[in-house]
Each structure stands twice: as structure tokens, then as C-alpha cells.
Nucleic acid binder design. Structure first.
Lengths: 140, 140
DNA sequence: GATGATTGGTCTATAATAGAGACCATCATT
DNA sequence: AATGATGGTCTCTATTATAGACCAATCATC
């Protein structure tokens, strides 16, 4: 099955297809997964279904505009569903779809890696910013 | 160990810390992993160490400016190393560091998910774009 | 019965970011 | 002496994100 190819053979496949963004799942799908807010929203909804205002309170520094847009994109991709309840001021609830749920496992893998690597990354940044010009000069 | 917490308990932890971007591995680390070019560069380097021009040829639609910047950021985070060979026109080779290598496994998980889910996502998009206003109206 | 608050957004104006492509010095080839 | 490759930087413009005002409806408060 192609899904468990080694990464390097896959890269060659992508390149040979000209990296067409429409045909490349990585560029097509991960561009969205990877944007500034998507992961945060998905993880927030993993905890529990949530209404617009509640999400906005949970993720305090997102603008309404970006929250709307992120939710629309996730809905378009089928990762979340939007449910309108005809209450007096209508309330709108967002939920993870099964497809969205299926994204949580690989996402958790990446989050685990991020947490485990955070210290090392911060150390590396500090060293780099301290002007560590220990350039890796190698013999010709 | 905290690393395998359920996602929802973790989200609450993050929120309780005020989502400080400096303290939150997800926002801090995944923002970089998730940007437009980083994953592509990492996967390209997973195949083999690569020189600047070679990378630029492999990823045809990145500008030199963004390639430079992405490589600098990855170097700063310690995911790749930069090796200067004092050849006549100096050549510069980029390689995955052990830390960068360690990112490949979780990244591959996400890539697998993307490939497996791509068809479903495209179908969902098509339906959404076809103006499928089957709003999920629910009883109050 | 006006005041403010909450609902789920939209709209505009500005700030930050990405991209295109010119440019640079050095050396080898033609 | 012109061409191309090396690994970049720099500037200018186009795209994108953010902040925050605004909106209609409905409710509770004073």
C-alpha cells in the first residue's frame, strides 16, 4: 500500500508530478492543518463541541474574522460540522466530524513530538541567537 | 508521563497558562512545522542532504528569499545543520540533524493521514462549493 | 422604555508577511 | 568577454492577517 512508503520515495513522486498543489495531499491538506489557528481549533473541539462565542473565549487572541474563516475552511474540508439551533438568539455549535476525529491521532503524534522536543528547540534557538557562528566548515 | 495526556486535558492546560506562545509547544513549534515550506524542505532533506541550489530546483515554486528564510529558521531550531565546503564557489550543504530526523516519524503520520483522507476532503469541498446548504438545523 | 449585554457574524482600514525578481562577487568554461 | 553556477541579499509589490467598529434580534436590568 502506498500510504506507508518511505518519505524519500514519496518526495520523488511528488516532485515528478510537478508538485501540483491540487494533486499533492501534503501541500493541499497540511497547508490547512498547519496554519496558525486550525490545530488549536481542532484540539479545542476535541475536548467538546463548542459554540462560536465559546470558541472565541477559549482561544482569546484570534480575531472573529479569522475564527469565522478557520471554521468555514474546516467545515468545507469536512473536518467539522456546523449545527444551528433556532433559539431566540440563534446559537451555532461546531463539532468534530468523524473525519475530524480521525485527524486527532496523527495530530497528537506531532503534539507529543513538539512537547518532547520543545526544550531542545529552545536551547538551539538560544545558542543560535547568541551568535553562535560555529559554522560547520568541512574539508572540501 | 505528561506527553501522552489526552488532547482535551492538554488544551485546558494550555488555556490556563494563557496560551502564552512562548510557553506553548504547539503554537511555538507547530507554527513553524506547519508553515507553507517547512514540511516540504524537511521531507526533501529526509531523502538526502542537499545544497541550496539543489533544494531550489527540487522545490521549484519557492522563492530564494523564502528558501533562505525557511532554512535559517530550521537551522535556528536545530532541525537542520548547515555545512560550508570551501570549494572555489563555496558550496553549502543542508542536512537533517538528529532532532530533525526525530520529527520525520510524527510528520509521516500526518502525511499518511493526509493521503488517506485526501479523497474524502476533496469530496467534502466539492459538496460545500456546490452550495450544499444542508445546514444542520437541530431542534432547540 | 432606554441601557447594556449576548447571539454570530460582516466589513473596513491598517499592519505584517510572502513572492517576484534584480543584483552581487567569485570562479570555471567557452 | 560573455555565460553560467555558486549562495545568497535587497527592494518593491501583492497577498494575507489583525484590530476593531458595526449590525439586527432578543433579553434582562433599572
Amino acid at each position: 500500500m502506498a500510504a506507508s512508503n518511505a518519505l524519500n520515495t514519496r518526495f520523488d513522486e511528488w516532485r515528478d508530478r510537478g508538485f501540483d498543489a491540487n494533486a499533492c495531499p501534503v501541500r493541499n491538506v497540511l497547508d490547512r492543518i498547519g496554519d496558525k489557528w486550525t490545530t488549536l481549533i481542532l484540539v479545542a473541539l476535541a475536548a467538546k463541541p463548542c459554540r462560536f462565542s465559546q470558541l472565541h473565549r477559549n482561544v482569546p487572541d484570534i480575531s472573529k474574522r479569522m475564527l469565522t474563516q478557520t471554521l468555514r475552511d474546516l467545515q468545507r474540508d469536512g473536518l467539522i460540522t456546523r449545527h444551528v439551533f433556532p433559539t431566540k438568539p440563534p446559537s451555532v455549535e461546531y463539532r468534530l466530524s468523524p473525519l475530524g476525529q480521525s485527524a486527532l491521532a496523527p495530530l497528537a503524534g506531532l503534539i507529543d513530538w513538539a512537547e518532547q522536543s520543545f526544550a531542545a528547540i529552545q536551547a538551539s534557538r538560544a545558542q543560535f541567537d547568541a551568535g553562535d557562528t560555529s559554522e560547520h566548515l568541512s574539508a572540501a
